[in-house]
Simulated scan of single mutants.
Amino acid sequence: MIKGLGSFGDMAKMMKVAKDMQDRMQQMQADLDTITVTGESGAGLVKATCTAKGELTALEIDPSIFVPSEKEVVEDLILAAIKDAQRKAQDRMQSEMARITESMGLPADMKLPF
């Protein structure tokens, strides 16, 4: 508490903490656009890259799987790689959120934003 301000000092401190949290959340949101994760399937024959927000940014397919009779297998491998990348993106976003909440002295499992 700031001396002489009574409960207003506590309010000022809370407002500063809230502003710091808002600034960190905005920075984290910007960072999530630049963090990438790669999911794969078929022992690496298909790779999908996503931002930590889950936006698909790249798809790499080994040409050896382009056999007309294996169309359904290729489609399944593509979907599996995308789902793997999206799961990894979600995990990464949650770990970034936990890192921020812990650095602010909040419980790691606290759900943000409120």
Rank of each mutant, 00 (worst) to 15 (best):
A80Y: 11
D31T: 08
M15K: 02
A43S: 02
A48S: 14
M93W: 09
K111E: 12
T36A: 08
D84T: 14
Q94G: 13
K71P: 09
P113L: 05
V37E: 13
P68V: 12
P113K: 00
L5A: 08
I100V: 15
A58S: 12
L59Y: 04
R92G: 06
V17K: 14
T34A: 10
T51F: 02
M1K: 05
E40C: 10
L5G: 07
S41G: 04
L77G: 05
E72F: 04
R24I: 05
A30K: 11
I78A: 00
A85G: 12
P68C: 11
E75A: 14
E96D: 09
L79D: 13
E40T: 15
L56Q: 10
C50P: 01
L59E: 10
M14I: 06
K111F: 00
E70I: 09
E75K: 01
P107A: 14
V73A: 05
S69N: 12
G39H: 11
E96M: 13
K53C: 01
M11Y: 06
G44Q: 01
E75V: 03
L77R: 01
G6M: 05
I82A: 11
T38D: 05
M1H: 07
L45D: 07
A52C: 02
S69P: 04
V37P: 14
K47R: 03
V37R: 08
R99Y: 08
L59C: 08
Q86C: 03
T36C: 10
G44A: 01
A89Y: 07
K71Q: 15
P68K: 12
G4Q: 09
L59H: 04
M110V: 02
M14E: 14
V73N: 10
T49S: 02
D20K: 00
M21D: 00
G42N: 09
L106D: 06
I100P: 02
S41F: 02
C50F: 00
L79W: 10
D10A: 11
L32K: 07
D84N: 15
L45I: 06
E55A: 08
G42W: 04
V46Y: 02
E72S: 09
I35L: 14
A48Q: 08
D33Q: 05
Q29G: 10
A18K: 06
Q29M: 11
M104T: 06
V17Y: 07
P107H: 05
K71M: 15
A52L: 07
G6W: 03
V74C: 05
K16E: 03
S69Q: 11
Q94M: 12
S64V: 01
C50E: 00
T36E: 12
E40P: 08
A98W: 07
S69Y: 04
M97C: 04
L106T: 03
A89T: 03
D31V: 11
